[in-house]
């Protein structure tokens, strides 16, 4: 505690103010009566009503959620498999290429990923829409999932799995009964990460989508490019609120589980 000086207190206060004041301003102005975002004309929830009656906005939100659920679920399965391959499969032909393809999308500029996938879809003459966005999102988010899951797999005691195999489990049973419960938190955070990445993505979706499908970020983009609008502020507020509730409840659940685990360990120790 000795070193928690006024300097540290100031930098934390200023730093967190910088991170949060812009969002607070955004939220405050979503309750502004005036159409002009810069002039405060009194409290009103008018823009929320407007938003909820904007059918094209609701359609876009629905498309986005569909894409995010499907792509993050496929990405979780593929990414977990890829993590398993990287950590466990040992040497095989083309391993370097494989791990390269897992890590490259993490640092690839979105414009390049989007462009290359679009050229592929056009080359194959695929109709662009929800389906192609799902394929694109699955591809880049499976890499994030595999990084998250493989960091958990590395620290995982392999002898547990071997014990299960020795006791007569099939490899799949050993995975389902021993490995999966242990790596589950990483798999879940991988899914959440993939889900959020998909919800957020503007650039890759713009490249890979066709006229048939518009996602929420694309909708926001086309409105925001013309300037600030109170309706988008209202939408942002709703999204920020959802994320905040999600993150806080996830961390509470985590904390709760950690406390329970500790208590169980203590109980077990007492019995010994």
């Amino acid at each position: 505690m000795r070193r928690f000086s006024w300097f540290n207190a100031t930098s934390l206060t200023l730093g967190f103010a910088f991170l949060y004041v812009p969002m607070i301003i955004l939220i405050v102005y979503s309750f502004n009566k005036s159409k002009l975002v810069t002039v405060w004309a009194g409290f009103s929830t008018h823009w929320y009503g407007e938003l909820l009656s904007n059918q094209s906005m609701l359609d876009a939100a629905w498309v986005t959620v569909k894409v995010a659920v499907v792509s993050s679920s496929i990405a979780t399965i593929l990414g977990t498999m890829a993590a398993y391959v990287i950590v466990r499969a040992g040497r095989f032909h083309g391993r370097t290429l494989f791990s390269g393809m897992i890590y490259a999308p993490l640092v690839m500029p979105e414009v390049i990923t989007g462009l290359s996938l679009l050229l592929l879809f056009i080359g194959l003459n695929v109709d662009r829409g929800v389906m192609t966005i799902v394929l694109a999102h699955t591809t880049f988010s499976m890499c994030y999932v595999s990084v998250v899951v493989s960091s958990r797999l590395v620290s995982f005691d392999q002898s547990l799995e071997e014990a299960a195999l020795d006791l007569g489990c099939s490899p799949f049973q050993a995975f389902r009964l021993v490995t999966l419960p242990i790596i589950a938190p990483a798999v879940i955070s991988g899914w959440l990460l993939a889900f959020t990445l998909s919800l957020d993505d503007l650039v890759i979706a713009s490249f890979t989508s066709g006229p048939a499908a518009t996602t929420l970020p694309m909708k926001i983009w086309s409105s925001v490019r013309l300037g600030v609008s109170p309706e988008i502020n209202a939408l942002s507020t709703i999204m920020i609120a959802l994320v905040t509730v999600g993150v806080i409840s996830a961390s509470l659940i985590n904390k709760h589980q950690a406390v329970r685990k500790k208590r169980e360990e203590q109980a077990a120790e007492r019995q010994l």
Binding site: M23, L26, D200, S236
Partner: peptide, 11 residues
């Protein structure tokens, strides 16, 4: 959302 955090600065 990244887009929203950038948008916040426009206003």
């Amino acid at each position: 959302s990244f887009l929203i955090r950038v948008y916040a600065w426009m206003g």
